[in-house]
Design a protein around this nucleic acid. Structure first.
Length: 256
DNA sequence: ATGGTTGCTTAGCAA
C-alpha cells in the first residue's frame, strides 16, 4: 500500500501534473492540499477516468483539501467537529483500506507574533484535541499533509537564517511535537537521517535549482502502522516540470 | 535588503 501527500497550489492549474504523477506512481491514496477551488469545480471526473475516487473539502480562493483513493473512502470527516460553517477548510479524514488517513493543510502563520501566527498555534492545539477525541492511537493511522513547520534544523537549508522565524519557531515546533506525542512517528525520519531533504522550495530567487528548501510536508503514522512502513521518499520530479507547484509529493509504502 | 514569484481575482491578499 502506498499513501502520498502533495500540496498542489491550485488543482485546476496542476491537474495535468497530478494526473501524470498518479499514472506513474499509482498510490492507493493521495492527499491534496491547497486545491483552491470549491467542491463543484473539483475535477473529480478526470480522476475517476484513471481509477481514483475523490473526497473533497474545498472553499473559494484559498485552502481546500481532498483525498483521492483507488478504493472507496469510508467515515469521511470534513473539518473539526465544532467548526463554524465559514471556517477555513484545512482538514479532511477518511478510512481507506483499513487505515485512518488524516489530511491537513496547517496554517502558514505569516509572521511570528502576527494574528495569523496566533491562529496557527490555536489551530494546532485543536488538532491535538482532535486526535484525543476522535482517533485511536492503537489503530493504523496516518497524519499527512503540508504541516507548514520544519521540525528540526536538519529540515532547513540555512537554520541560522531561519532561527525563530515562521515555519521554524520554537512555539510552532513545540505545538507539532505535542501532536506527535499523542502517538505518531515521522515516517521519513525513520528511514532517512541525513539533512538536505526538502519538500518545498520558494518560487522566488531560484530556490529549487539551488536546493534552498524546507521539509514541510510530512507523513506521521501511529506505531502499529509505522511498523509496516518499508520506505518513504520525496519525489522531486514534478518540481522540475513547467509551472510546478512549489511543493513536491512525499510517499510512504507499507507492507501488511 | 520587506525584494523576489505564483495563484486567485482583477488590486490586493496569501503563500
Amino acid at each position: 500500500m502506498k499513501i502520498a501527500t502533495w500540496n498542489v497550489n491550485s488543482i485546476s492549474v496542476r491537474l495535468q501534473h497530478v494526473l501524470q504523477w498518479l499514472d506513474g506512481n499509482r498510490p492507493d491514496a493521495l492527499c491534496l492540499q491547497e486545491i483552491k477551488c470549491v467542491d463543484a469545480k473539483f475535477p473529480a471526473g478526470a480522476f475517476r477516468e484513471i481509477g481514483y475516487a475523490a473526497e473533497v473539502f474545498g472553499q473559494p480562493t484559498y485552502n481546500g483539501v481532498a483525498i483521492l483513493s483507488t478504493t472507496p473512502a469510508a467515515d469521511v470527516q470534513r473539518g473539526f467537529h465544532n467548526d463554524a460553517a465559514d471556517a477555513q477548510r484545512r482538514l479532511i479524514a477518511a478510512t481507506i483500506g483499513g487505515v485512518r488517513v488524516v489530511n491537513v493543510y496547517i496554517p502558514n502563520g505569516s509572521e511570528v507574533g502576527s494574528e495569523k501566527y496566533e491562529f496557527k498555534l490555536s489551530w494546532l492545539a485543536r488538532l491535538r484535541k482532535f486526535f484525543e477525541e476522535a482517533c485511536d492511537a492503537d489503530q493504523p493511522l496516518v497524519l499527512c499533509g503540508d504541516f507548514n513547520v520544519a521540525m528540526e534544523d536538519r529540515d532547513v537549508y540555512n537554520p541560522k537564517e531561519w532561527e525563530g522565524k515562521i515555519l521554524c519557531s520554537e512555539p510552532e515546533r513545540a505545538a507539532m511535537r505535542a501532536v506527535r506525542e499523542w502517538g505518531m512517528v515521522d515516517l521519513f525520519r525513520r528511514h532517512h537521517e541525513e539533512p538536505g531533504n526538502y519538500t518545498w522550495w520558494d518560487y522566488r530567487g531560484g530556490g529549487f535549482p539551488r536546493n534552498l528548501g524546507l521539509r514541510l510536508d510530512h507523513l506521521w503514522a501511529s506505531e502499529s502502522l509505522a511498523a509496516k512502513c518499508t520506505a518513504t521518499w520525496i519525489d522531486k520530479l514534478p518540481r522540475t516540470l513547467e509551472k510546478p507547484s512549489d511543493h513536491a509529493p512525499v510517499i510512504a509504502e507499507f507492507k501488511f
